[in-house]
Nucleic acid binder design. Sequence first.
DNA 1: TGGTCACTTTGATCGAGATCAATATAGAAA
DNA 2: TTTCTATATTGATCTCGATCAAAGTGACCA
Lengths: 246, 246
Amino acid sequence: MNVINLTKDSCGECPIRHRAVCARCDDDERVVLDEMKYYRSYEAGQTVVWSGDRMDFVASVVSGIATLTQTMEDGRTQMVGLLLPSDFVGRPGREHAPYDVVATTDLVMCCFRKKPFETMMEQTPHVAHRLLEMTLDELDAAREWMLLLGRKTAREKIASLIVIIARRDASLHLSGPESTIVFDLPLTRVAMADYLGLTLETVSRQVSALRKDGIIQLEGKRHVTIPNFQKLLDEAGDDSDGGMLN
Amino acid sequence: MNVINLTKDSCGECPIRHRAVCARCDDDERVVLDEMKYYRSYEAGQTVVWSGDRMDFVASVVSGIATLTQTMEDGRTQMVGLLLPSDFVGRPGREHAPYDVVATTDLVMCCFRKKPFETMMEQTPHVAHRLLEMTLDELDAAREWMLLLGRKTAREKIASLIVIIARRDASLHLSGPESTIVFDLPLTRVAMADYLGLTLETVSRQVSALRKDGIIQLEGKRHVTIPNFQKLLDEAGDDSDGGMLN
DNA sequence: TGGTCACTTTGATCGAGATCAATATAGAAA
DNA sequence: TTTCTATATTGATCTCGATCAAAGTGACCA
């Protein structure tokens, strides 16, 4: 596989330092992690891990986007996870990967060999606590996703996905809440279909429909402008209070 | 609410002692939990917590079945969790419940006030570790469920649900692997529909179809016999290797 | 400059599951 | 016993998204 091993950067300048699994670590712990960590890069389209493969590392996404995908014997596929920078891949204590992990864009991951990482989890509380927190958040996201898959219409599914991507983008770029939102879709139509439990044709049609109705504006196939975020939210069918968790 | 507060039973005889969030606790820790715990009972159909309500406790299911359900503004509902004995309800650090929790059968829960429980999580590792483990398992189950919701046919969905219930029942009754499997469905047709992202009519039709095809036998509306578990598995469309996790 | 390839859009038709409607069943109440 | 109510089944029809098919677009390369 065409994997580039980067030189070690210091954790101090790490862009995901404050959100990743290592966010709560004190200086001593971070020195240990610094020792055991190594970076890996993947090109867009590359498979990081195959379902069923032995997985001897866990990792954080540093930059780029990866997906977790499940495949049935006859080829039907469903995306079950969308991994953004700071998200965690792998499960301490698990030998084999249960899903395909695929780099959707160019991807950099910060990897830890599994055994030392597990040892650290047992000896210090901060990594385990942060991982619990992140896993609970992921479980919430998965349940939101289940509502989408089970009960939303194709149009609502597309609108919901655009909301999710817009929100993520906003949290990275920290733009003012009232500015018009502009970003690039990081997923192909096929990937969107796999995410939403639709066919790519239906995705294409519903994206076009939202464009015709003025809910979104498209420049090329990927560049999206949202003139009125509230209108998009209404199309997504979400609770109006924007997710009153916590 | 018609809640019965039971007398305190000792943790020593607790039927879920070896699987619940307290499974890894040592004797000292269990004494602390014993002090702060209290039981609550709910009748079938009662709502344990309403979405958005303040939730000042976390709990383990001791006996019976509860469901987590999300509802859209127009009334569409999707079940997002099925809680069986030993499963955990609530999230440390969260103020308000994000989902409705409903008792599907008569239900007994072992509750802990949130604050003391959180304090314990910070001070001792065993509860936090076990909770992480359980949350990761739930996340796996949620992802399996997402595949079901996004890509399976109505018939496959029904077969998959029956497999899940049969497996759970087997793990409780520890019957030999080769005996014919017999159990009662713990869910109404409506609850099954909410679980599977279907209408109750489709559920009813597909259950009838599986019966006509000899995949399951029905006595009354709830009592199920599975003459050939492998045939049922084939109908569920799952990977033949029965879930090669770990 | 044209050709190739991957991705996307659009059109026509089909079908699984939803919807609307009527009937069946069984446990509880009277 | 009869009636009532909640739950479940079955039938007829409709519709949304799937499927099958054909073009359109644009990046890259020879």
